[in-house]
Design a protein around this nucleic acid. Structure first.
Lengths: 169, 169
DNA sequence: GTTAGCGTACTCGGATACCGGTTGTCCGAGTGGCAAAGG
DNA sequence: CCTTTGCCACTCGGACAACCGGTATCCGAGTACGCTAAC
């Protein structure tokens, strides 16, 4: 009843990040269709396609249409931060939106000339500060960092990925 | 089209926090009904009531029924962090939920005995790290800190609040 | 005058509808490759 | 054998529907106050 998990982040973020990792392991030479990328994780292809389009708009991937087409990384993994990916999928807006309710009702009118430039909302500032820390932490981690972590704790993964995408040619 | 602001936080967080500030300025002696607290910001009373119930469940407020009833702060403002408020309203679950898609499809079966205890998901770890920074920042700010900020940049506010709640007795 | 009892009005609390947005799906536009035909 | 040309299959891209969770609302349970009436 009370556990309503509201701050939920878009689920496509997980898909997009994993897919970016796979694309990095496969190299930026050949393009991989969305359908194949989706099949690797048994995801709905059309919906993953939607996420990849968002990544393309954000210049994280490049897309090429037609046969032999697909997606590939637009930059080196060192150049793409997790913040970039999250922003591309989840949008650029902050989680906490100050709607300035303090200006309404009781506090608003009674203060004579409303023109008094109210100081910035302290609550908004505090929330913004916390979100900034979150963004800074996300921006500090690149795809290359995540790749390094995976390869160190699970060295076989890159080969396995390459093998799978080659076999099911 | 692309700007879909997905990570949005529950709007009630703003209402709840502002209301907590007002309750702090009014003192913890008398209880204030949800209807009056809502009227101050011209908010829908029944819905704010819902948020205040959540704060009560989290032991941030105490509620008393009947005439002369209402809500009051359960602790000193120094004892309540913004993290407490956000958790009470938005729920305790993290924004990023790792669904472990990496276990499915191509990577899952082919690795012989699936029993191999896969290392923790690196993406999940990175996201969790960022969220931890966010939580730490929220936990570092108490209601008292926010109050101090407001009173320093806008000294008249506390009196104005008290006056309004006294006048509309 | 005092006190016990009752009615009433006010408040929280949870159960109940409504709506916007994420999730999921589909079809059209564009493009490169392949094959066949002609030189 | 080489070149050209037309067709076709494959891919992205954005438009369309469905389901879920936040938004908003309402009515019932409980309580303290105030009034009345009896002692």
């Amino acid at each position: 009843m009370s556990s309503v998990q509201v701050v939920r982040m878009n689920e496509g973020v997980e898909w997009a990040t994993h897919t970016c990792l796979n694309l990095a392991w496969l190299g930026a030479e050949r393009a991989v269709p969305a359908a194949r990328l989706a099949a690797f994780y048994e995801l709905p292809a059309a919906y993953l396609n939607k996420q990849l389009q968002a990544l393309t708009r954000a210049n994280i991937l490049t897309s090429v249409s037609g046969p032999r087409g697909g997606f590939r990384l637009a930059k080196a993994p060192e150049q793409v931060t997790l913040m970039d990916v999250v922003t591309a999928i989840d949008g650029p807006d902050p989680a906490f939106r100050c709607t300035e309710i303090r200006q309404r009702g009781g506090s608003g009118e009674a203060a004579g000339p409303t023109s008094a430039p109210a100081a910035p909302c302290a609550i908004d500032a505090a929330m913004r500060k916390a979100e900034l820390a979150w963004r800074r932490e996300l921006a500090a981690q690149t795809l290359a960092d995540v790749i390094a972590t995976v390869e160190s704790s699970n060295p076989g993964v890159p080969d396995k990925v390459r093998r799978w995408f080659d076999d099911t040619r």
